[in-house]
Design a protein around this nucleic acid. Structure first.
Lengths: 205, 205, 205, 205
DNA sequence: ACAGGCGGGACTTCCCGTTTAT
DNA sequence: ATAAACGGGAAGTCCCGCCTGT
């Protein structure tokens, strides 16, 4: 009862895995996990069912891999490195808001914060998702808080008060929330309002 | 204790409609729209298929009704009335954060902001949803901004700067974002951090 | 985790079932059962997985339905009616051979005898298939044998000897075997040889 | 009883090849090519994957080898030699039918004609298969036709008419077709009917 | 008005033929 | 030469939103 069709095949597990993760990350970001079917991923990544399920036995496995390998990297690239490379924590924060606004305007549409999207969609679904997502939030806030703490110790960053952790949370919440509103409205106005507010607080505390 | 002069018919269209909306709103909030099935709603609201579809011909109709009638009311109850009834806008904002934290601790679990949940899930799915949701965000910010504007005109609310609209957005973003984090972490710590920050800014500007 | 997409739908169980059977019968005949996938059938019949499996829970169910409703009808149309309508059994037999050859030449390819194809492929796979297939062979031979018996009783059809059953089997075997060879060779030469032989036997016994 | 002067290596390439062909031929005959997996063959022939693929890089190669070396030999043994060794072509034909019936009754099951089975399964799949299979049919008919031609030239075999080629085809078709029916019915009745018919035609033309 | 039928499609399991690391 | 990994794809289960005969 089997069909045999012989076309040449090449084994490239690493490339295959990456292709799937890329496609999945992109679709999860734009449509959400629920609206992305495994079949869509197969088609867009040009991967067969067998190959897909060899690397990611369930959709959950794939989703967790996207969170741990792609969303995580995106948070690191967008926020953590930016914060660390900036002259001051405050300058880094403002820079990220500004560059996010620029990107959104270029793109012409707002698909939201990769981490925030998944957090809202998956947090109530499953403990494993929740843990993976809190880990990402933790890294994000920790990177911010550590930089702030250093500056506070050096007598700077007075806008953050004496509690760098709390202020890090405020920044993360502000960004996540503004992104939610921006996504609903499909325009970055909310982000711009928050940037304005932060500029005032950071530059003239 | 007396029997009401009621008709023979056991039907109660209005009551049924409300029952369905209640069940749906609750489930949408806790599981999301996608994970809530019409069958579940039927069962929990004790309504038959035909009766349900008489009132809400499609799931989309039901969802829009939940947004326009239930989520809207929740935003009004939780934020708009609280802001208007409080002695000052600032006090109102702090009170809402505080009471939200109290509620979450009582409930022992965090299902997130009703509006934020739906916004993230539905915004990218359909224009009709998006419009209904932005309307809610607008009302929320507008109520805040108007109160702030009044106080600024009276020489108060200096923490809000000169732009009440922008500060309103900041508050909404802060609340939404903190709720996202709180939902992911299943604890209201992020809200508490934000409350702390706001207290400092509002009380000693 | 569900996607909802609303496109209009129409319920037509009967039409759907027939569309599937048509497509399946055609593909089973041309490619064989084993080389026809349920997915192929879905695509060609423009039927969704759910709809397909509602009508035919397994591939076996579909295959048995094709045998009992389509192959059966084809045998009836091609052989049984032709035999009954012909002036004599012999004339009928020759006519079927001739018209088969004509059809094959027109088509330019030989996909074999619908019943024979399935018989060879499925007989060793499963008892249920076997029974369904033998039933068809029986009807075919029975129709031939009865016609022959009538003519023998009337003093005709001397070429068939005194045993109409055995001669019916010979005709069926001759046709099936010639079709096998014709399919392998992709030309109707074998059928023509058999027709020649039968003509000689029937016309000048 | 003496030990053979053999090499250290336990390998026996020729023997392995034969073992594989035997196992494959047997399984192809009983289950068909499609229902026979390379893994089954490996296991039954006690050969490792690599060893198998050294001799037969693809399943197609193996299948063609089975056709060209095993099926071919079976046709030669069963029909061609029998025809040549018999006192007359007619006697040979009858003998083959008879011995086939005897074998089937002994075996208690009917797996069909090795050539016919493969022909039906593979003819429509691939040109290479088709050619290999038509070659076998050709040899079979040719052997029959040549013997008949000799006898006709000697004034015998009047039952075959003047066209030995056509009658050879009739015999082959009759055998193949009867085998199909016998396989479907799992009893050699159809073959017996055909034998009866042929006896009458050949003995008392 | 209602229960059950219908069509839609997502997800997963299974196994097969082939390739590759060892 | 061997066993394990790999990519391909068929078959099936499940449930959902919607429609319809009674």
């Amino acid at each position: 009862m089997r069909k045999r069709a012989s076309t040449k095949r090449t084994n490239d597990p690493e490339g295959m895995r990456n292709r799937v993760l890329d496609v999945a990350a992109r679709s999860f970001q734009q449509l959400g996990v629920g609206r992305t079917s495994m079949h869509d991923i197969q088609r867009k990544a040009k991967v067969s069912t067998g190959a897909l399920y060899r690397h990611f036995p369930t959709k959950k496995d794939l989703t967790l891999a996207v969170i741990g390998e792609r969303v995580s990297a995106e948070v690191a690239d967008t926020w953590i490195r930016a914060i660390e490379d900036a002259p001051t924590a405050g300058a880094g924060i403002l820079a990220v808001f500004q560059s996010t606004i620029d990107h959104l305007e270029e793109a012409g549409k707002v698909s939201g914060c990769p981490l925030g999207n998944l957090a809202l969609e998956l947090a109530s679904a499953d403990e494993d998702y929740r843990h993976a997502l809190t880990d990402e939030y933790q890294s994000w806030r920790k990177a911010l808080a550590q930089r702030l703490a250093r500056e506070i110790a050096d007598g700077g960053a007075s806008y953050a008060g004496s509690d760098p952790e709390a202020f890090a949370t405020v920044v993360v919440a502000l960004f996540s929330g503004a992104m939610s509103i921006a996504k609903a409205e499909q325009r970055p106005a909310a982000l711009r309002d928050c940037l304005l507010y932060l500029e005032r607080k950071i530059r003239e505390p």
